[in-house]
Design a protein around this nucleic acid. Structure first.
Length: 301
DNA sequence: TCCTCTCCTTGCTT
DNA sequence: AAAGCAAGGAGAG
């Protein structure tokens, strides 16, 4: 149902937004790696489209499309425009008192393509955001199909990356991640792999499946579940979330799995909250202990 | 089986 | 200039 339009007549959408929205945080928080700041908007690639987005008057997302229009509903889903992110606090009232967290709820957790999320986060091992973007954008430039009316390219499918040379991945700066990415691309492109099956599977089962892929451990499995498979109960524990969660839990040392279990108290939307905590910890310094914080809040109430 | 340590690439920072 | 650091994972011991 997607139609390619000529460049001279780009498609526009005006999409009303439920709840707060902050494009800067959304695109720079480390969940996605193909969003670029332009003079007047942000440019990203979603499916077969380049989309430029900016905010309009009272909480409207203005979208300009080049290439295959995903359609209004797909875009509303991609940005979760019909959901108020603050709802995720319903099961985590204790976090309301966390200084600096409330202003971050304009972060929209994007519903990304699972293969793009998986492969991007394989690139993320021991890398920083700039490095990851370079790898991801490099792969798209080299192997992605062109988008009509745009200089940007689609993200290459697993089938395509399964056929590239490892040396070409290394040339893009992939380093030791190159063989992981290629082998995982092969596995995902094979007949034995089904994203639909993963969507149906219980969280633990899906996580085990992903961990069976080369170069994929618990952290990247959880990122794939959270960012690519809409599993908001996934709580990826990286070095920042490890520190942040230990601080909140008043723990000196703890295993990642313990921290995941501890974070279950934040409810079914804890993955969404994780992304806010991640951003807060990276930009705002150490976090207070939740126990002390809530004791103080109770006294002053 | 579980824990800890080291290595693996690269490029930018101190 | 050498070392540290960056959304980790795999293999050894």
């Amino acid at each position: 149902m997607s139609t390619a339009r000529p460049e001279a007549c780009p498609v526009h959408h005006r999409l009303p937004v439920t709840g707060p929205i902050d494009l800067e945080i959304t695109f720079t928080c480390g969940q996605a790696f193909r969003w670029e700041r332009r003079a007047d908007a942000w440019s990203g690639v979603v499916g077969g489209a380049e989309i430029a987005v900016r905010l309009g008057d009272p909480s409207v997302l203005l979208v300009e499309i080049a290439g295959e229009d995903p359609g209004r509903e797909a875009l509303v889903g991609y940005f979760r425009l019909g959901e108020d992110p603050l709802n995720h606090l319903d099961h985590a009232q204790e976090l309301r008192n966390l200084p600096g967290l409330l202003p971050l709820f304009g972060l929209r957790l994007l519903r990304q393509d699972p293969w793009e999320a998986l492969s991007s986060f394989i690139c993320s091992a021991a890398a920083n955001v700039r490095k990851i973007s370079g790898c991801v954008e490099g792969m798209a430039a080299r192997w992605g199909d062109p988008i009509a009316g745009s200089s940007r390219r689609r993200y290459p499918a697993a089938e395509r990356l399964a056929r590239v040379r490892e040396s070409d991945l290394r040339a893009l700066g992939m380093g030791f991640r190159a063989p992981y990415l290629k082998q995982t691309a092969r596995a995902v492109a094979s007949r034995g792999w089904s994203w639909d099956e993963l969507r149906e599977a219980p969280y633990e089962r899906a996580r085990e499946r992903l961990c069976g892929l080369p170069g994929v451990g618990p952290k990247i499995a959880d990122c794939t579940l959270l960012f690519g498979l809409d599993r908001l109960e996934a709580y990826p524990v990286d070095r920042w979330i490890r520190r942040a969660t230990m601080e909140l839990a008043s723990r000196r040392k703890a295993k990642d799995e313990e921290l995941s279990r501890w974070a279950a108290r934040f409810g079914p939307g804890r993955g969404y909250l994780q992304q806010l905590i991640f951003h807060l910890r990276r930009t705002g310094g150490p976090l207070p202990s939740l126990a002390r914080l809530n004791a103080r809040a109770k006294r002053t109430a």
